[in-house]
């Protein structure tokens, strides 16, 4: 139930409605819990609601950190 994944917003509509795409599959979700999400943003979707917008800069930084950790040893 808690297994949620980052999905890309491909469409926004009235009443906080949006469509996200994950691996080619489209799904209708609600943006009622997040502000300022636009088409193209990545959001973490859980039980049909976006819980948080993904911070792309932070996502890249974390990946860089993994690479650093993995090569130190």
């Amino acid at each position: 139930m808690c297994l949620a994944m980052p999905a890309r917003v491909v469409e926004t509509g009235p009443a906080d409605q949006a469509v996200v795409e994950l691996d080619g599959v489209k799904k209708e979700i609600s943006l009622a819990l997040v502000d300022g999400v636009e088409v193209g943003d990545y959001v973490i979707v859980h039980v049909g609601y976006a819980l948080q917008k993904l911070d792309i800069d932070e996502a890249e930084k974390t990946l860089a950190l993994f690479a650093e950790m993995a090569t130190q040893s």
Partner: peptide, 23 residues
Amino acid sequence: MKFIDEYRDGDLAQGIAAAIRQE
């Protein structure tokens, strides 16, 4: 899948595992 596959890289996992074993 963006923001998913990169976080599942097997070689990096081995690298971090080596760091854990070392520390």
